[in-house]
Every structure is written in C-alpha cells, then in structure tokens.
Design a binder for these strands. Sequence first.
DNA 1: CCTATAATGTACCAAGCAGTTAATTCATGC
DNA 2: GCATGAATTAACTGCTTGGTACATTATAGG
Lengths: 221, 221
Amino acid sequence: MSRSNQPVRSAKPGWKQNPAEVRSDILRVSREEFAARGYSGARVDDIAARTRTSKRMIYYYFGDKEGLYRQVLEDAYRETRDGEQRLRIDDLAPEDALRQLIEFTFDHHRSNPDLVRLIMIENIHHGRYLAGLDAIKDLNRTALDKLRRICRQGRKAGTFRGDVTPIQLHWMISALCFFNISNQATFSMVFGGRLHTNGGQRRVRDQVVDVVLRYVVADPS
Amino acid sequence: MSRSNQPVRSAKPGWKQNPAEVRSDILRVSREEFAARGYSGARVDDIAARTRTSKRMIYYYFGDKEGLYRQVLEDAYRETRDGEQRLRIDDLAPEDALRQLIEFTFDHHRSNPDLVRLIMIENIHHGRYLAGLDAIKDLNRTALDKLRRICRQGRKAGTFRGDVTPIQLHWMISALCFFNISNQATFSMVFGGRLHTNGGQRRVRDQVVDVVLRYVVADPS
DNA sequence: CCTATAATGTACCAAGCAGTTAATTCATGC
DNA sequence: GCATGAATTAACTGCTTGGTACATTATAGG
C-alpha cells in the first residue's frame, strides 16, 4: 500500500539491449527445465527466475509456453543432426565404419542426456509438438544415409548378411543407446547401479557394438 | 444464487456403499490419465470426472495426488511381475526358453503400453516416486531368475558363450522391447510408420529374437 | 433398534500459474 | 538531435487446480 503510490522510479538507470543473448539465455535455461520436469512440470516463472531477464521477454520472443517448448525441441534435434554430420566415416571399411557409428551414437546419447529426456517427453505427448516442425523431414536423414552406404558396401564385400536394412539397423542402435540413458533411473534402482559406473558403461558400450556387429555379419554357410 | 439458499436436499435418495469398487475404479482411470498426460499433466479433477465417484473419494482413499500416483505405479509393477511369474519355460532347452522369454517380453510391452509409459514418466522424474516403494526389491527378481537358469544351462551345454551375464541379457531384451513402444511416436514420425504396422511388428519381433540369440551363441572356434 | 464409524456428496478456498497491460528506455535512420 | 520502432521492466489479472470443511448417509456390532 505505502510503496505503490510513489513514483518508484528506482535503480536501473541504464541497461544494454542484447536480443541475441537474451534469446539464447532463455533457450538454454528452458531446455534444462523442460528436460528436468517435462512440459507440464516446467514453470515459466521458474525459467524466468533462472535467466538474466524477465518472464515478459519469454512471451515477447516465443509467444507462449508451447512456442518456447517447440523452439527448444527444434534446436535439440538440429544439434543432434549437426553432430552426426560431423562424423567422417565414409572412407572406412564397413565393419569399422559401423563400429565407429555405434560408438559415436552411444557417446552422443551419454553426453547429452537432456536431448534424450526431451525426446522421452515428446513421446509422452505422442509427438504432438514435434509434428508441426519443418525440420523433421530431413532429420535423421544423415544417420540413415551413412548406414545405407555401410550396408551396401558390406553386402558387396560379402561380409554382411543380405537381409539387414539400414532402418532396422538404425532402430536397433537407437534403441540400445537411448534406453541406456532414458531408463537409467528405474533400471539401476531395481538392479543396482553396476551398469552405470564408468567401467560398467565401458562394458555396455562394447556389448552394444558387439551385439550389432554379430547381427550383421554373414553366416559362414 | 437462487439455488444455494434452499436446502437443496435433492435427488440421491439412496446410494450403495462399495469401497472396493470405488477404489479400483479410481485406480483404473488414474492409470490411464497418468499414462496419457504424465504426473504433472494429469488433473485430479479430470480423473474424478471420469470415475463413477467424486474427487472427495480420491483424497479419502489416497491422501493426495502423489499418493494416488504411487499406488498406480506400484500396481503396474506388481502386474508386470505377476505376468512374468506365470510364464513357464523351466523345462525347455536354453535356446527355446530364451526365445519364448523374449517373445513374451516383446508381446507384454506391446499389449501394455500404459505400463511402458508409466515407467517413462517415472524416469523423467529420476525414479523419485518409485524410490519409496517396498515392492522394488524383489521386483524383476523373477525375470532375472529365469535368465540365470537359461545362462547356466546354455553354458553347460556348450551352446552359449561363457561371458554373457543374465543382467546384460535382461538389459538388452528390455531395451529393445521397451524402445519399441516408448519411442513409437517420434520414431515413426521421423521414419514413417512401416515398423509399427502389424506386419512390421512381426518382423521387428523376429529381429529382436534373432539379435539376442546371435549374441549369446558360442563362437564356432 | 441404536450407536459408532466408515463412506460419500456438496460446496468452497487459497495458492499456483500462464499470460497481459502499460509504461519506459535503448538504438537507429534520417 | 529527433522521431520511430525494438527491447525491456514492473506490476497485475483471472482462471486453473490441488486440497478441505462440513454435512449426510450407509453399515456393522451390540
């Protein structure tokens, strides 16, 4: 009561404009919050409090909570694709290329748990928010292209089975690398944390490589 | 205004008491809502509206929203364990037993997507609600026991490799069967729905059996 | 029957939370 | 240097939502 009727023109005499940094600051914090608490669990006020700016700016740049989430999601997917594109395995023998692709995927998931969590969250929502994004079409195009080449060359060399498809392979690699992160909490709660120590993860990684490679190699017959 | 100052002693002349059914009705609806919208996304009012009873009864029987969620989670886990216990494969040859265990696990996940979703949600929350449950200790004990027997017999017969552990195997089977359901939305959005038609799922199932069996069989050397 | 307790219905509330209003300051082109 | 739009601040609003108070009815034990 007593403080609202005076002009209040306090503090903040000068401030800099920096739209780019404000935007990316909001996005960074939002990704963490959405990944940590889910879409409905995340609070716009909490996000705002953790940024160097105010809640108003979130609505200024992203319209509403859903717009913010969509942007976070799109950025996450683009980063993943860009990472895959940076992987150079085109001049390796098919087995070696495949091994490197698997190891890269495994490590990528492991060092970007927030991306994994965002995808989990998106699946909880039946992919509703992902649906409207333009970027999906050519999204995992890169990973699949690399697998296509590997399969073709492997078959030609006779070391691969004839009936494995790139998409099957991608599905399998994704499943193993994704589950490793997505279900870490409940799995280690039920079975103990042995699999998620540093040594345990090294073994799991070798195992994933092993299981996929054994699957693709041609039968001796 | 006009209707609140009269006694209102309207309708509802007689009603039956049926605590057991009320409880299970609430739990059934709650599971669907939590599985569909996540913990924070689910609304107690919505759950109440879909039951044959009122919001009051939810709080009467389960204390608060968290208590309700915990009960849903516990029931889901118990059902899964009970299902596994009903599987009788002890007198089969290790390869056949393993195949049947994998097929059972695959089908179980596929026909109980809500259970999968509840586990996803629990992982989003870092397993916080699962932590307090007593039932976790002996939870997947049964699945692991079966795998232990299979591994032991397979090694003894010489058809299995010596270095596969039951927990590794369980991890792998879980990963493939779980991912198949958990990431259905985003995966088929990016790669098309080919894998999730009836025929596609039959192929995926065969593939899962195949990849695991190839992994455990001993090298010819 | 009568009484105690368990079960249920109705109405309500206070905090939480997404989104807004309105005023102010910075930056930029002329 | 000044007009104009972009960027930013601070305070506010109204609906949503988890949770409750209180009255009422059913049921079981004596």
